[in-house]
């Protein structure tokens, strides 16, 4: 199955929950509503043959509203097709379902997105910071995090 077919197949399965699709030189993208996030990912994995979650990350589009995006890249090791899945989340309390139940690799990706952007992944088994230390305040890759913001130095944790 080529990725374009996959976009069509995804639309056929999810109907109006697919907000937008685009396809540019083999760069295939589908945007779904946050409610359909888990459903779309599961359809890609179980029905459409995308067996590899290559990446999951956050993005901040301040001052746009909905402000945040979660972006996933999928790959099919059988056909070599790639597909990008996105969802848009509001600025207030961005939250979306966790994919950790579908892909183990989503675990640390989601922890990173939580750490850097403060996006909450509902149902994640252990949503702690991944890169920054526990006492760090705020989410440093948010566009409104002060550019030269420094926080107090931490002590050695024994």
């Amino acid at each position: 199955m080529t990725a374009e077919n996959a976009l069509e197949a995804l639309k056929a399965r999810l109907g109006g929950k697919v907000v937008e699709t685009s396809s540019f030189r083999g760069d295939d993208t589908a945007v779904v509503t946050p409610e359909a996030w888990l459903e779309a990912a599961s359809a890609l994995k179980n029905g459409l043959g995308f067996d590899f979650l290559m990446d999951l990350c956050g993005a901040d589009y301040l001052p746009r509203e909905p402000r945040f995006e979660v972006v996933c890249h999928f790959y099919s090791s059988k056909t070599g097709a790639r597909l990008r899945l996105k969802t848009r989340l509001p600025g207030g309390k961005p939250a979306v379902d966790s994919l950790a139940g579908l892909w183990l690799s989503a675990d640390w990706f989601e922890r990173e997105a939580w750490d850097m952007y403060g996006i909450d992944f509902k149902g994640h088994p252990d949503l702690r910071r991944l890169l920054m230390y526990d006492s760090f305040e705020g989410h440093p890759l948010r566009k409104d995090y002060p550019l030269k913001g420094r926080q107090p130095r931490i002590d050695h944790a024994d």
């Binding site: 890169l131 920054m132 230390y133 760090f136 926080q151 130095r153 931490i154 002590d155 050695h156 944790a157």
Partner: peptide, 10 residues
């Protein structure tokens, strides 16, 4: 980095 600073001191 800041996370490593206390280790270096130690």
């Amino acid at each position: 980095n800041e996370k490593l600073a206390p280790v270096l001191r130690r």
